[in-house]
């Protein structure tokens, strides 16, 4: 039985079909990525899981049981780190535990041993504004991890980082996840990121979103530390072709007119 099983989920928002029968599943200990064009409905998919949005059709099963209100199997990490500037790093990290009702002291005691692993040792009492972008992102990840939910939902967590910091974060995530095997569902635009980190990858179509293709990534780990193997690069190309190839899915492709090449930038953003 899958830990998370989304079956044929369809959602219309304000008369627009956003999800058109999306099915995907995540097994325990698995790292699964969702790739898709901007505005494909990935955020809506996350709202189905965390935001109390109910699908018009289909269902979401967690360990075989329908997702119910009050049942929160997900720890969510938003695109921007969403650290509260008025809380010190340690208090940002304990936020989820405090919301769950854990007393502050207990919550602090529980998260303190993890700071070293997340490269935040000695920064417990700092304010978020004192940290670099990469450190803030690690703090946000730690805040997600300590909630100890069955599934972690990461919404483009490294999208706002500069390229070098992002590469460092990806290597770091790869190492941490190899240790812990946290069950994770990652939304990203970065095909290489998905190939480097995932066990499986779903490619979504343009809105209304459907699953265009599913890719298994049968590569050993670690992948990033020694340079991606040729098989990974081949897979990256294949996925990119699926995302961009107009033959594959005529209706869903970016509408680029040959006579208006300037629109390409907008369409492919």
């Amino acid at each position: 039985m899958s830990l998370l099983d989304i079956r044929d989920a369809a959602v219309r928002l304000g008369g627009t079909a956003v999800l058109d029968g999306v099915s995907l599943h995540v097994e325990r200990g698995e790292f699964v990525s969702i790739l898709g064009p901007s505005g494909a409905g990935k955020s809506t998919l996350f709202r189905l899981m965390t935001g109390g949005l109910a699908p018009d059709r289909g269902e979401i099963l967690v360990s075989g049981r329908p997702l119910a209100a009050g049942n929160r199997p997900f720890a969510f990490m938003p695109q921007r780190d969403a650290l509260m500037p008025w809380r010190r790093i340690i208090d940002n990290v304990t936020l989820g535990l405090e919301v769950q009702g854990l007393p502050r002291r207990e919550a602090r005691a529980r998260v303190a041993p993890l700071f070293a692993q997340f490269g935040l040792d000695g920064f417990e009492r700092h304010w978020p504004a004192q940290l670099s972008g990469g450190m803030r992102q690690r703090a946000a990840l730690l805040r997600t991890v300590v909630q100890q939910r069955p599934v972690m939902l990461l919404d483009e967590p490294f999208g706002a980082l500069d390229a070098l910091t992002r590469a460092g974060m990806q290597r770091w995530v790869e190492a941490r996840w190899q240790d812990h095997r946290w069950t994770t569902l990652l939304v990203t635009h970065d095909v290489r990121e998905a190939v480097s980190l995932s066990d499986r990858i779903y490619v979504l179509s343009r809105r209304p979103a459907r699953v265009l293709a599913e890719f298994a990534v049968p590569l050993g780990r670690p992948r990033l530390a020694h340079g991606l193997p040729a098989a990974a690069l081949a897979l990256e190309t294949e996925i990119l072709n699926t995302l961009l190839d107009p033959q594959g899915d005529k209706d869903e492709m970016p509408r680029i007119r040959p006579d208006r090449p300037d629109r390409r930038a907008t369409a492919c953003r």
Partner: peptide
Amino acid sequence: EPEIEQLLATMGASRATIFRRA
């Protein structure tokens, strides 16, 4: 920040908690 409120909501925070914490 809407992200902070959204985050608290995913943590299971009530409207009153979101008010107090965010």
